[in-house]
Write a protein that binds this DNA or RNA. Sequence first.
DNA 1: GTGAAAGCGCTAACAT
DNA 2: ATGTTAGCGCTTTCAC
Lengths: 364, 364
Amino acid sequence: MAGSTGSDEQAAPTIYDVARAAGVAASTVSRAFARPGRVNADTAGRIRRIAVEMGYRTNPVARALLSGRSSMIALAISDITNPYYFEIIRGAQAAAMEAGYTMLLADAQESDRLEREALDRAVQTVEGIVLASTRMSDTSIRMTAKLRPLIVLNRAVAGVPSVVTDHHHGIRQAVDHLHALGHSHITYLAGPEAAWSDGMRWQALREAAVELGLRLHRLGPYPPTVLGGVAAADDFCRRPTSAVIAYNDLLALGLLRGLSAVGVRVPQDVSVVGFDNIFGTDLVTPGLTTLAAPLHLLGRTAVQGLLALISGTQRPVDKPVTIPTRLVVRASTDQRRPTRIAAPAEQAELSDLLQTPSAGITTG
Amino acid sequence: MAGSTGSDEQAAPTIYDVARAAGVAASTVSRAFARPGRVNADTAGRIRRIAVEMGYRTNPVARALLSGRSSMIALAISDITNPYYFEIIRGAQAAAMEAGYTMLLADAQESDRLEREALDRAVQTVEGIVLASTRMSDTSIRMTAKLRPLIVLNRAVAGVPSVVTDHHHGIRQAVDHLHALGHSHITYLAGPEAAWSDGMRWQALREAAVELGLRLHRLGPYPPTVLGGVAAADDFCRRPTSAVIAYNDLLALGLLRGLSAVGVRVPQDVSVVGFDNIFGTDLVTPGLTTLAAPLHLLGRTAVQGLLALISGTQRPVDKPVTIPTRLVVRASTDQRRPTRIAAPAEQAELSDLLQTPSAGITTG
DNA sequence: GTGAAAGCGCTAACAT
DNA sequence: ATGTTAGCGCTTTCAC
């Protein structure tokens, strides 16, 4: 329809256009939107009506230049292809929208460099930042926190406000569950050493093991992916125990898959517990017993905290905000029975898996 | 360390600070970054060095105000909790970053209103928009396209450039596959009526059925979720066929689950084909046969097209760019055998599923 | 309660 | 090749 030359864009009306149409000064129009109380009610009404008629929208860029209020926050994520982030992103986005903020998403693709790069670019534009499972160093994080209000998710960094899940209590629930089922020897499949939560989980696990008199065994670290779990299955079969706790669900799902490939039955031969209750844990056979974190709440809490920081409502607090977890019991855990696991044979399986959609998915 | 009053932020150096330090005019500094060729090499080098020393970064907001170049694009998604978008987002983000662009993510949460709201807010800031599986009307889309360069994903809108997967060929592959396995009667589980791709798939299905002399049956529409698939299982059992093609993988996964709950075996009793090859389709038992779209490429193509539009390198083309699909054959499809499906009994199952992480996941 | 004017940091004209 | 000037659209003094 618009038979113009190239990229045909409509010139948006400015505040001056509205002011002229309403017969007032631009400053009055500005006030009518920002501080309606300080403008004559009639005038304000008229201005707003005219503004709507003209399709006027205040230019956020111009606003941001002077006031610094860009109404944008950034959410940086270590890897967007991890289902773990679904609800976190959504919770964050919901909280942001409710407050009239737009969310900028930076997927680090597991790369420290990309994460910094994306952040560098965004820092000056956004009013605040949420770092979810970041791979950056504590130092980098603190430096960024100096530039903008910042909240870290799933990690405690001294001097930077953070939101974390209650690893300690969560692990305890998982161990109690396995203990109650008669398991006395547990293997932990470790995640990336750089992951703060891996350290937390392992530590909590050791404490729980001591208290309950359980034997503990650690395998890994593995990449926190389905493929990592498949690899872990091999290792595990060489030193089997009756129960396994995996760093996260992706790893646990891979383990289930790897065990099934070599004929080890879950839960008859091994009980498996994961972390996070991500998409798919209820679809596989057997369903995965896992520690569910209220991910939506996690994202929401982080953003709300950030907005409070931005508005100055709240001063940065060093102590992490802790979100509780709950154990979701499914079919992958059961009573301990005499272990009978053969050595791995069909290694060929692995190469097949490389082509599948879940293989490359990773976690932070 | 910084014992200041409230939210302590460092004042970033401006272009004037750099200019003063370098003993040149601000415009020269600007040129040194934007058009190095038009500045004496020595001067440019000195300026850059000083800028780095001072930690100067050009303020993107100020730049955007004058030039309109915010270096940001928006990606609007109908529902971020759908694994379908994983790789799309990632491909899009990768393409954006390579070009020096930051990506703003708008999750519509299945809501037309939220989508428009988020877009309204972002339109003025971003240089262009990718609409993935949008729920907006053609009219809304065209209006937005008037404001900014825009590309639609998974939908053809007259007058707006788009990128779509080759439904026609894809469906044909799926039907050929089932046909070759001896299936002569296929049920299609329909997705949301608002979804453009649902219409496309159904149409392609009908054409293929006619050509191959197959009988076709349509059930639905269902919400394109795991839960929708569970519901579909009930309906399907009342009018069973030997093969099913679902609108998408989420629906197919739910179907597998629902069928398993009532004791219908896949693929012995029914063969099931999904769409998209999302995360998890290779983890369930049986693995889901599905039409894989190169999702990463889809996202990448859309953004690259958008950037070409923005830079003016390319004029908007009405004809959709088509991306090919390929059939991934897994265990959910097999030779046709005499159907023997009992009426549904255990309806109770459904309420259980409502609590699970995969239940609420939806698609666009 | 309203208007006038200055300026956020940058870049695009124009001038030299 | 570099400097000077003006102004993007808005908000925020400061007058009235």
